[in-house]
Design a protein around this nucleic acid. Structure first.
Lengths: 201, 201
DNA sequence: GCCACGTCATGACATCTGTCATGGCTGATT
DNA sequence: AATCAGCCATGACAGATGTCATGACGTGGC
């Protein structure tokens, strides 16, 4: 019997996935959590064979929960299940030790088979997505550029960003300019769009 | 037996919801589609009692499919199931004749009961979301302002927007200026963010 | 007929943005 | 010691953006 922990914030989807897995005779959903920061405690208490983690969750992302789990329960296989086939997500997940990366777009039957393959020690990745990840590669941005770009999502003007990061407005503009050149964008907004599409956030 | 049509683009979620509904003795999922523009044809062929529609789908949105269905199969109850509790979505859905509006955040058990209540003629809406919709009201934007703002998602510069809509750059700036004042935004980007959060798109 | 409103447009203005050159500082590499 | 990349900052410049006044046109309501 394969013991599965299920982490997914949307109640409807979580319940539905549980019922889907409940149809499998060799799979048992032993824990369900709705927040990223509840994954570790739940996993410690039930010691699952496989953890199925959504990425977008309150508290902590699935990728953060993945890192915690790897440290605390090295024997537990981890599958990431997400809406977005962002190559950056895939790369980070696999580098952090995930056993697989599933898209919610994939057919429902693949879920159970992915779990069985993960338990058998295989790594499960959508082939097309893997190719995209390799071709698109990592973010070309430096840590600071990444930070400034991320802050520009929440603050409307350069002055606001500068205030939030304790930088001079000129520095913020320089960083953003560098970001735009690297991403071949004509705009802060366009740069943001491109970075989000690639999963670099 | 309640005959249900299920429209949801993500295969994993669609299959999971189907299995969830399959547990209910009085509910039968008689059709599944992955695209908004396949809803009508499928509904015509199986004549379901209830159509469960996701909003975000390729081909046509759930709200568009809703409008088609109301015209073609007036007896069919329609439930909207979506990730985003945007008051604008809710308002449009209910005005177009939906029997209910469910959030994927809600507990899984609510799905079956919502379907039964819809069949019984009730209208099913999350109380908190309904209150938010009433308080936030409708979009204050005119049709043209709305259109220009929407176009600014896809085009980076004023010149691009103007070209796409066959307007002069000055006119586009005027419309956007008016939008920003109405939404109390300091930016095109901020205005876009606000409008998206409210579901005015 | 008059008025309000939405649409489209132009021109002028102030401000914001993005680019570039330049320079100082740090830490890592050679 | 010398070099390089990243980080921070400043100043100057061009171009984009947002605001405002103004005016034309059509529609619909009173």
């Amino acid at each position: 019997m394969i013991r599965v922990l299920l982490a997914e914030d949307q109640g409807m989807v979580r319940g539905a996935l549980a019922s889907l897995l409940g149809l499998e005779p060799d799979i048992d959903v032993v824990a369900q959590v709705a927040r990223g920061d509840e994954v570790l405690a739940a996993a410690r208490s039930v010691d699952p064979d496989v953890a199925l983690l959504d990425i977008e969750m309150p508290g902590a992302t699935g990728l953060e929960a993945l890192a915690e789990l790897r440290g605390a329960l090295p024997g537990c296989r981890i599958l990431i299940l997400t809406t977005f086939g962002r190559p950056g997500y895939l790369r980070r997940a696999m580098e952090t030790g995930a056993s697989g990366f599933l898209l919610k777009d994939a057919p429902a039957q693949e879920l159970a088979s992915a779990i069985r393959r993960a338990v058998a020690g295989e790594r499960v990745v959508d082939p097309g997505l893997a190719a995209a990840a390799l071709s698109e590669g990592e973010s070309p941005l430096t840590a600071r550029e990444h930070e400034v770009l991320a802050a520009s999502r929440n603050y409307a003007t350069v002055a606001d960003i500068a205030g939030a990061l304790y930088l001079s407005p000129g520095t913020v503009r320089n960083h953003l300019s560098s970001v735009m050149q690297k991403l071949d964008a004509r705009n802060r907004a366009e740069a943001l769009k491109f970075a989000e599409e690639k999963g670099w956030l």
